[in-house]
Simulated scan of single mutants.
Amino acid sequence: MRIVTFPNGVEVSCHADIDVRLDEVSDLEFGVVCQALAHELTEDARLGVTTPRAEAGLGIPADPLDVRAPQMGFSNEYLTFDLHERTMLVQVLHPAVTTGDGIEAALSKDAGRRRLAVLSAELKEYRDAKSCDVAMSVTDDMSFGEIALEAYLILARLRGTLSESDTPAAVMEKLRVGAWSTLLGMAESDWLEVKRAMYGLGDARQRFELALDVSSFANSKDGGMIIIGFGTGQDAFGRDVIDNTAGITRLEASVARIEDVIQQLVSPAPQGLVIDVFHQDHRSVLAILIPSQSAAWLPFLVEGVVLDGAKMYGQGFTWVERRGTSKRAVSLADVQLRLRPQLAP
């Protein structure tokens, strides 16, 4: 038994392989961990990361297999990393598709959403279960939290739990046809933000918050959407999920004002924005759809900064990105690092 220390100070006891929980290393970049721990692992040893269930991480309903056969259910995922080869192995137990062609077709559906390349997908059959082992290449600049989201897409897709309706466009259609109640239980995610009340557009901080929310989705690979008028509450996993679809009143006048705020504060203005109000039983809900943006327009910046958590300062800008269910400001050091290649002679 020995003690291994990660770059963030987390210490774990191990023998040959190193095992750690995702919440202990979520913010660490893969390349940094490789440099720090590669010498700790023999050629055959691996780094294992235990994560929550993929469905919980993606904010989608749980694996129906757990309902049909609870004894086969697992409370966590286990991702295996080869730090020398820079690869990750994702084992999908009880896949919904069990043919090579079916696996290939399922994996191709999310190819545009993933940053990591699939190297191989191998079907295996055991005495009481089938599995599909998916090997993926891993890039050094991704955090373990970001890598886990990539693995979740693979796991949920091959289990059959990633529905085609779990997209901004599909949610917009449900709002349009009045199928609001079907969204109950949907969790906020890397593409969905839900707000019970309208932004206070008469307040500078609230206008700034709206601009930050929109730009964070514009800066993400797949865009996203904001729903205003639904309530949220925490489920058993601690996720914020839609628990009230009653809607609110007096939203129509807000559309033009929202458009003005985005035009004034977000630069460049995101392309293809859709802002619409939907009605049902004398109540309304407003949705802002931010489609995926061309890389040529990135980054989308917000005019102004907040000082001391309260005071607005107009001379400056804020660069935010969507990370999971929240937005995170890009640090000054990261801004300089990302701009350096563009400014080099």
Rank of each mutant, 00 (worst) to 15 (best):
P270R: 03
L158K: 06
V335F: 05
N76H: 06
D63I: 13
F278N: 12
R250H: 09
V4D: 00
A253I: 01
V302D: 13
D133C: 05
R250Y: 02
W191A: 04
L175E: 03
D281L: 12
I275Y: 02
A310D: 08
R53F: 01
A129E: 14
T249C: 05
A169L: 03
L93R: 13
G48N: 08
S163H: 01
P70R: 09
Y199A: 13
Q71E: 14
S13E: 04
V97A: 11
L89C: 11
L307R: 11
F208S: 14
V10K: 09
A246S: 08
L192G: 09
S26N: 11
Y313C: 12
V177P: 05
V177E: 09
L37Q: 04
L175W: 01
A105T: 10
L289C: 06
E193W: 12
A121K: 09
D17S: 14
L301A: 12
S131P: 06
E55W: 02
E43A: 15
R340V: 07
A204T: 11
R86P: 13
V171F: 03
E193A: 15
L119T: 14
M88H: 01
P345E: 10
D213W: 00
R328Y: 02
L107V: 02
W191S: 11
R250Q: 10
N219P: 13
L83P: 13
D240P: 03
S131E: 09
L286I: 00
